[in-house]
Structure formats: structure tokens, C-alpha cells
């Protein structure tokens, strides 16, 4: 990985962390970036400080609890005006799994501006370094008085030993609109909506905690976990970080009502080896299926 950032001065860039009420996952992984050589922030010319007034880059973890708010804002007020703020993990951005609680007061952007988001739950150290690297680029650009350029695109997968549980991928062509994924998603990251001619699934990577439960319970494999961990992005692009797909309606071959036909993957799960007779059922709406199977509608 090439993430060396050239600093014009020898003075290290100082990182300051504020925990706003996290589960400590992100914080423990940030400790790794101060202790383990492979992931040491030193390689980016950074070092951690325990003094808020020294913060060049501010790392924020946690969903911002009501109780922690005053202390967080007090510490934030102590940091220099030109600090770059990084939201670490999905919690500061959306609340993650903790959203909709009386005790959570986030998203953090209600109280202070954020420059970079690093999705993940928690983000792996490589992703943390990439996010901090992005913050350093913004810092340099601001100091030079130019607009920061977006991060060089490139998926974080190659040369990696382990396929980590990262970005979710959606294949609309095998989705049967059963919505089990939304049912099991603790973070409320998945949304279904009716659109012209079909149903749309939207999965937001700033809320997803990458647990993969949606993919585990998906009967057809429409949702799958990928190893792509490079999800850091400028905070202004937060809502563009989505996986989206439209599941098209097809007319019922009996009555013409628009339906989502059953995907072959679902038939294989249900019947192992579907017969042409069974295949025909997939293009029928429930009412027409009932007519075909037992002759007359139930009620």
C-alpha cells in the first residue's frame, strides 16, 4: 500500500481522539494504529496527542450520547480552528445500530462540521490509515489554499490476504422482494421503495455495520458481502455512499398484474430441481397460482 504522505516540515501531524460514547471497537483499533508497526500512523507522519489544543486531525468515534455531548463540545472548542475532523466508523455519521435511541444525540454533524467519513464497524486499520491519509490531503490542500481533490479511486482489495467483511453488493436480478434483509438489519441501513415499474433497494454504507446478517438470511444470494474496504470519502458525499438496485416488475402471465417473478435461485432452494410445471408458476401472481393449483380463489 502506498500511503506515504510527504510533509514539508519535520513536525508530525498530531491526531486527537474523542470518544463520544462508542462501543470501543473503533477506539481499540485506533490504539492498534499507535502500537503495531504495520499500521503505525507514524508511516503517515502522524502521532497521537492527549492534548486537544494540539489537534491537527480530530478523530471522532461513537454515536454521540446525550450524556457525553457537553464534554465532547467542550473538547472540540479547545481544538485549533484549522483542524480536520474525521468521523471514524458509521456511528458518528448515522448512529449505526444505536440510531433512534432517546440517549443518542447524533449525528455529530448537528453540532460540528465533519470533513472525512470512514465507514466500517469498526473500520480495519488499513481503512483507518486510508481515512487519516485523506484527512492529511485535505489539510495540505487547505493550507495551500486550493480545493481538495477527492481521493484517488481504487478498491481496497488487491494484495490483501484476507477477504474482510466489507461493502455489501446487491444483485437485483435475483432479488425476490421478500425484504428479509431489511427485517434483520439492526442498523436500518436497507430501504425498499416503490418506483416506476418496480421496487428499489437502497443500502446506505454510512449506516451498514457490515455484519452480513442480510446476506446470511437472503434466500437467493441477492445480497453478498465483498472484501472491498476502501469506503473513506469526503463527508459532503455521505449520502452518495449507497448500493442500489431496481427489481423490475413483470406482468403476471395469468391476469397481467405487475409482480416480482420468483428468481431461479429461489426455486432451486425450494425444489432443488424445478420441473417445467413449477417454472410456469414463477410468472404467476399469488391469486393466479392459487387458481392454477386448486382451481378457485380461496375467499
Amino acid at each position: 500500500m502506498h500511503m506515504q504522505v510527504e510533509e514539508t516540515t519535520v513536525e508530525p501531524v498530531r491526531l486527537f481522539r474523542i470518544n463520544t460514547g462508542s462501543c470501543n471497537g473503533c477506539d481499540v483499533e485506533l490504539a492498534v494504529t499507535s502500537a503495531v508497526t504495520e499500521f503505525d500512523v507514524e508511516q503517515l507522519g502522524c502521532r497521537y496527542t492527549e492534548d486537544a489544543t494540539e489537534a491537527d486531525v480530530l478523530l471522532i468515534t461513537g454515536p454521540l450520547t446525550v450524556k457525553a455531548r457537553d464534554e465532547v463540545l467542550r473538547l472540540y472548542a479547545e481544538t485549533p480552528r484549522d483542524r480536520i475532523t474525521v468521523a471514524v466508523g458509521v456511528c458518528p455519521v448515522s448512529g449505526g445500530v444505536f440510531r433512534d435511541s432517546y440517549a443518542v444525540d447524533g449525528p455529530i454533524e448537528r453540532y460540528l462540521p465533519v470533513d472525512v467519513n470512514v465507514p466500517g464497524c469498526p473500520p480495519r486499520p488499513q481503512a483507518l490509515l486510508a481515512g487519516i491519509g485523506e484527512a492529511l490531503q485535505i489539510r495540505q490542500a487547505r493550507r495551500a489554499g486550493v480545493e481538495p481533490v477527492g481521493r484517488a479511486d481504487g478498491k481496497g482489495q488487491e494484495g490483501d490476504n484476507f477477504p474482510a467483511r466489507c461493502r455489501l453488493s446487491f444483485d437485483a436480478s435475483v432479488c425476490v422482494d421478500c425484504r428479509m434483509c431489511r427485517h434483520v438489519c439492526a442498523a436500518g441501513a436497507i430501504r425498499f421503495q416503490e418506483v416506476e415499474g418496480g421496487v428499489r433497494l437502497t443500502l446506505w454504507h454510512n449506516s451498514c455495520v457490515f455484519c452480513g446478517l442480510c446476506s446470511h438470511y437472503c434466500p437467493t444470494g441477492a445480497l453478498s458481502v465483498t472484501g472491498d474496504w476502501r469506503l473513506d470519502h469526503p463527508a459532503a458525499d455521505a449520502f452518495a455512499q449507497v448500493e442500489r438496485g431496481d427489481i423490475p416488475y413483470a406482468p403476471c402471465s395469468g391476469c397481467g398484474e405487475p409482480i416480482v417473478p420468483a428468481a431461479p435461485q429461489l426455486l432451486h432452494t425450494a425444489f432443488r430441481r424445478p420441473t417445467p410445471e413449477i417454472d410456469k408458476l414463477t410468472a404467476l401472481c399469488p391469486a393466479c397460482r392459487q387458481v392454477m393449483s386448486i382451481g378457485a380463489p380461496g375467499r
Binding site: G21, K67, E71, H183, A186
Partner: peptide, 22 residues
Amino acid sequence: GQVHRGMEHLVMRRNLYQNITL
């Protein structure tokens, strides 16, 4: 109390599957 996220409230507003992840 700094890390009080209202978990006992949250688990009752999530179903049993969601609670595994939460």
C-alpha cells in the same frame, strides 16, 4: 453514563434477529 446509549430500550425496539447484531 457517558456511554449510555439506551441499549435496554433499543433491544425492545429491534426484533430478535436485529438484536444479535446490536
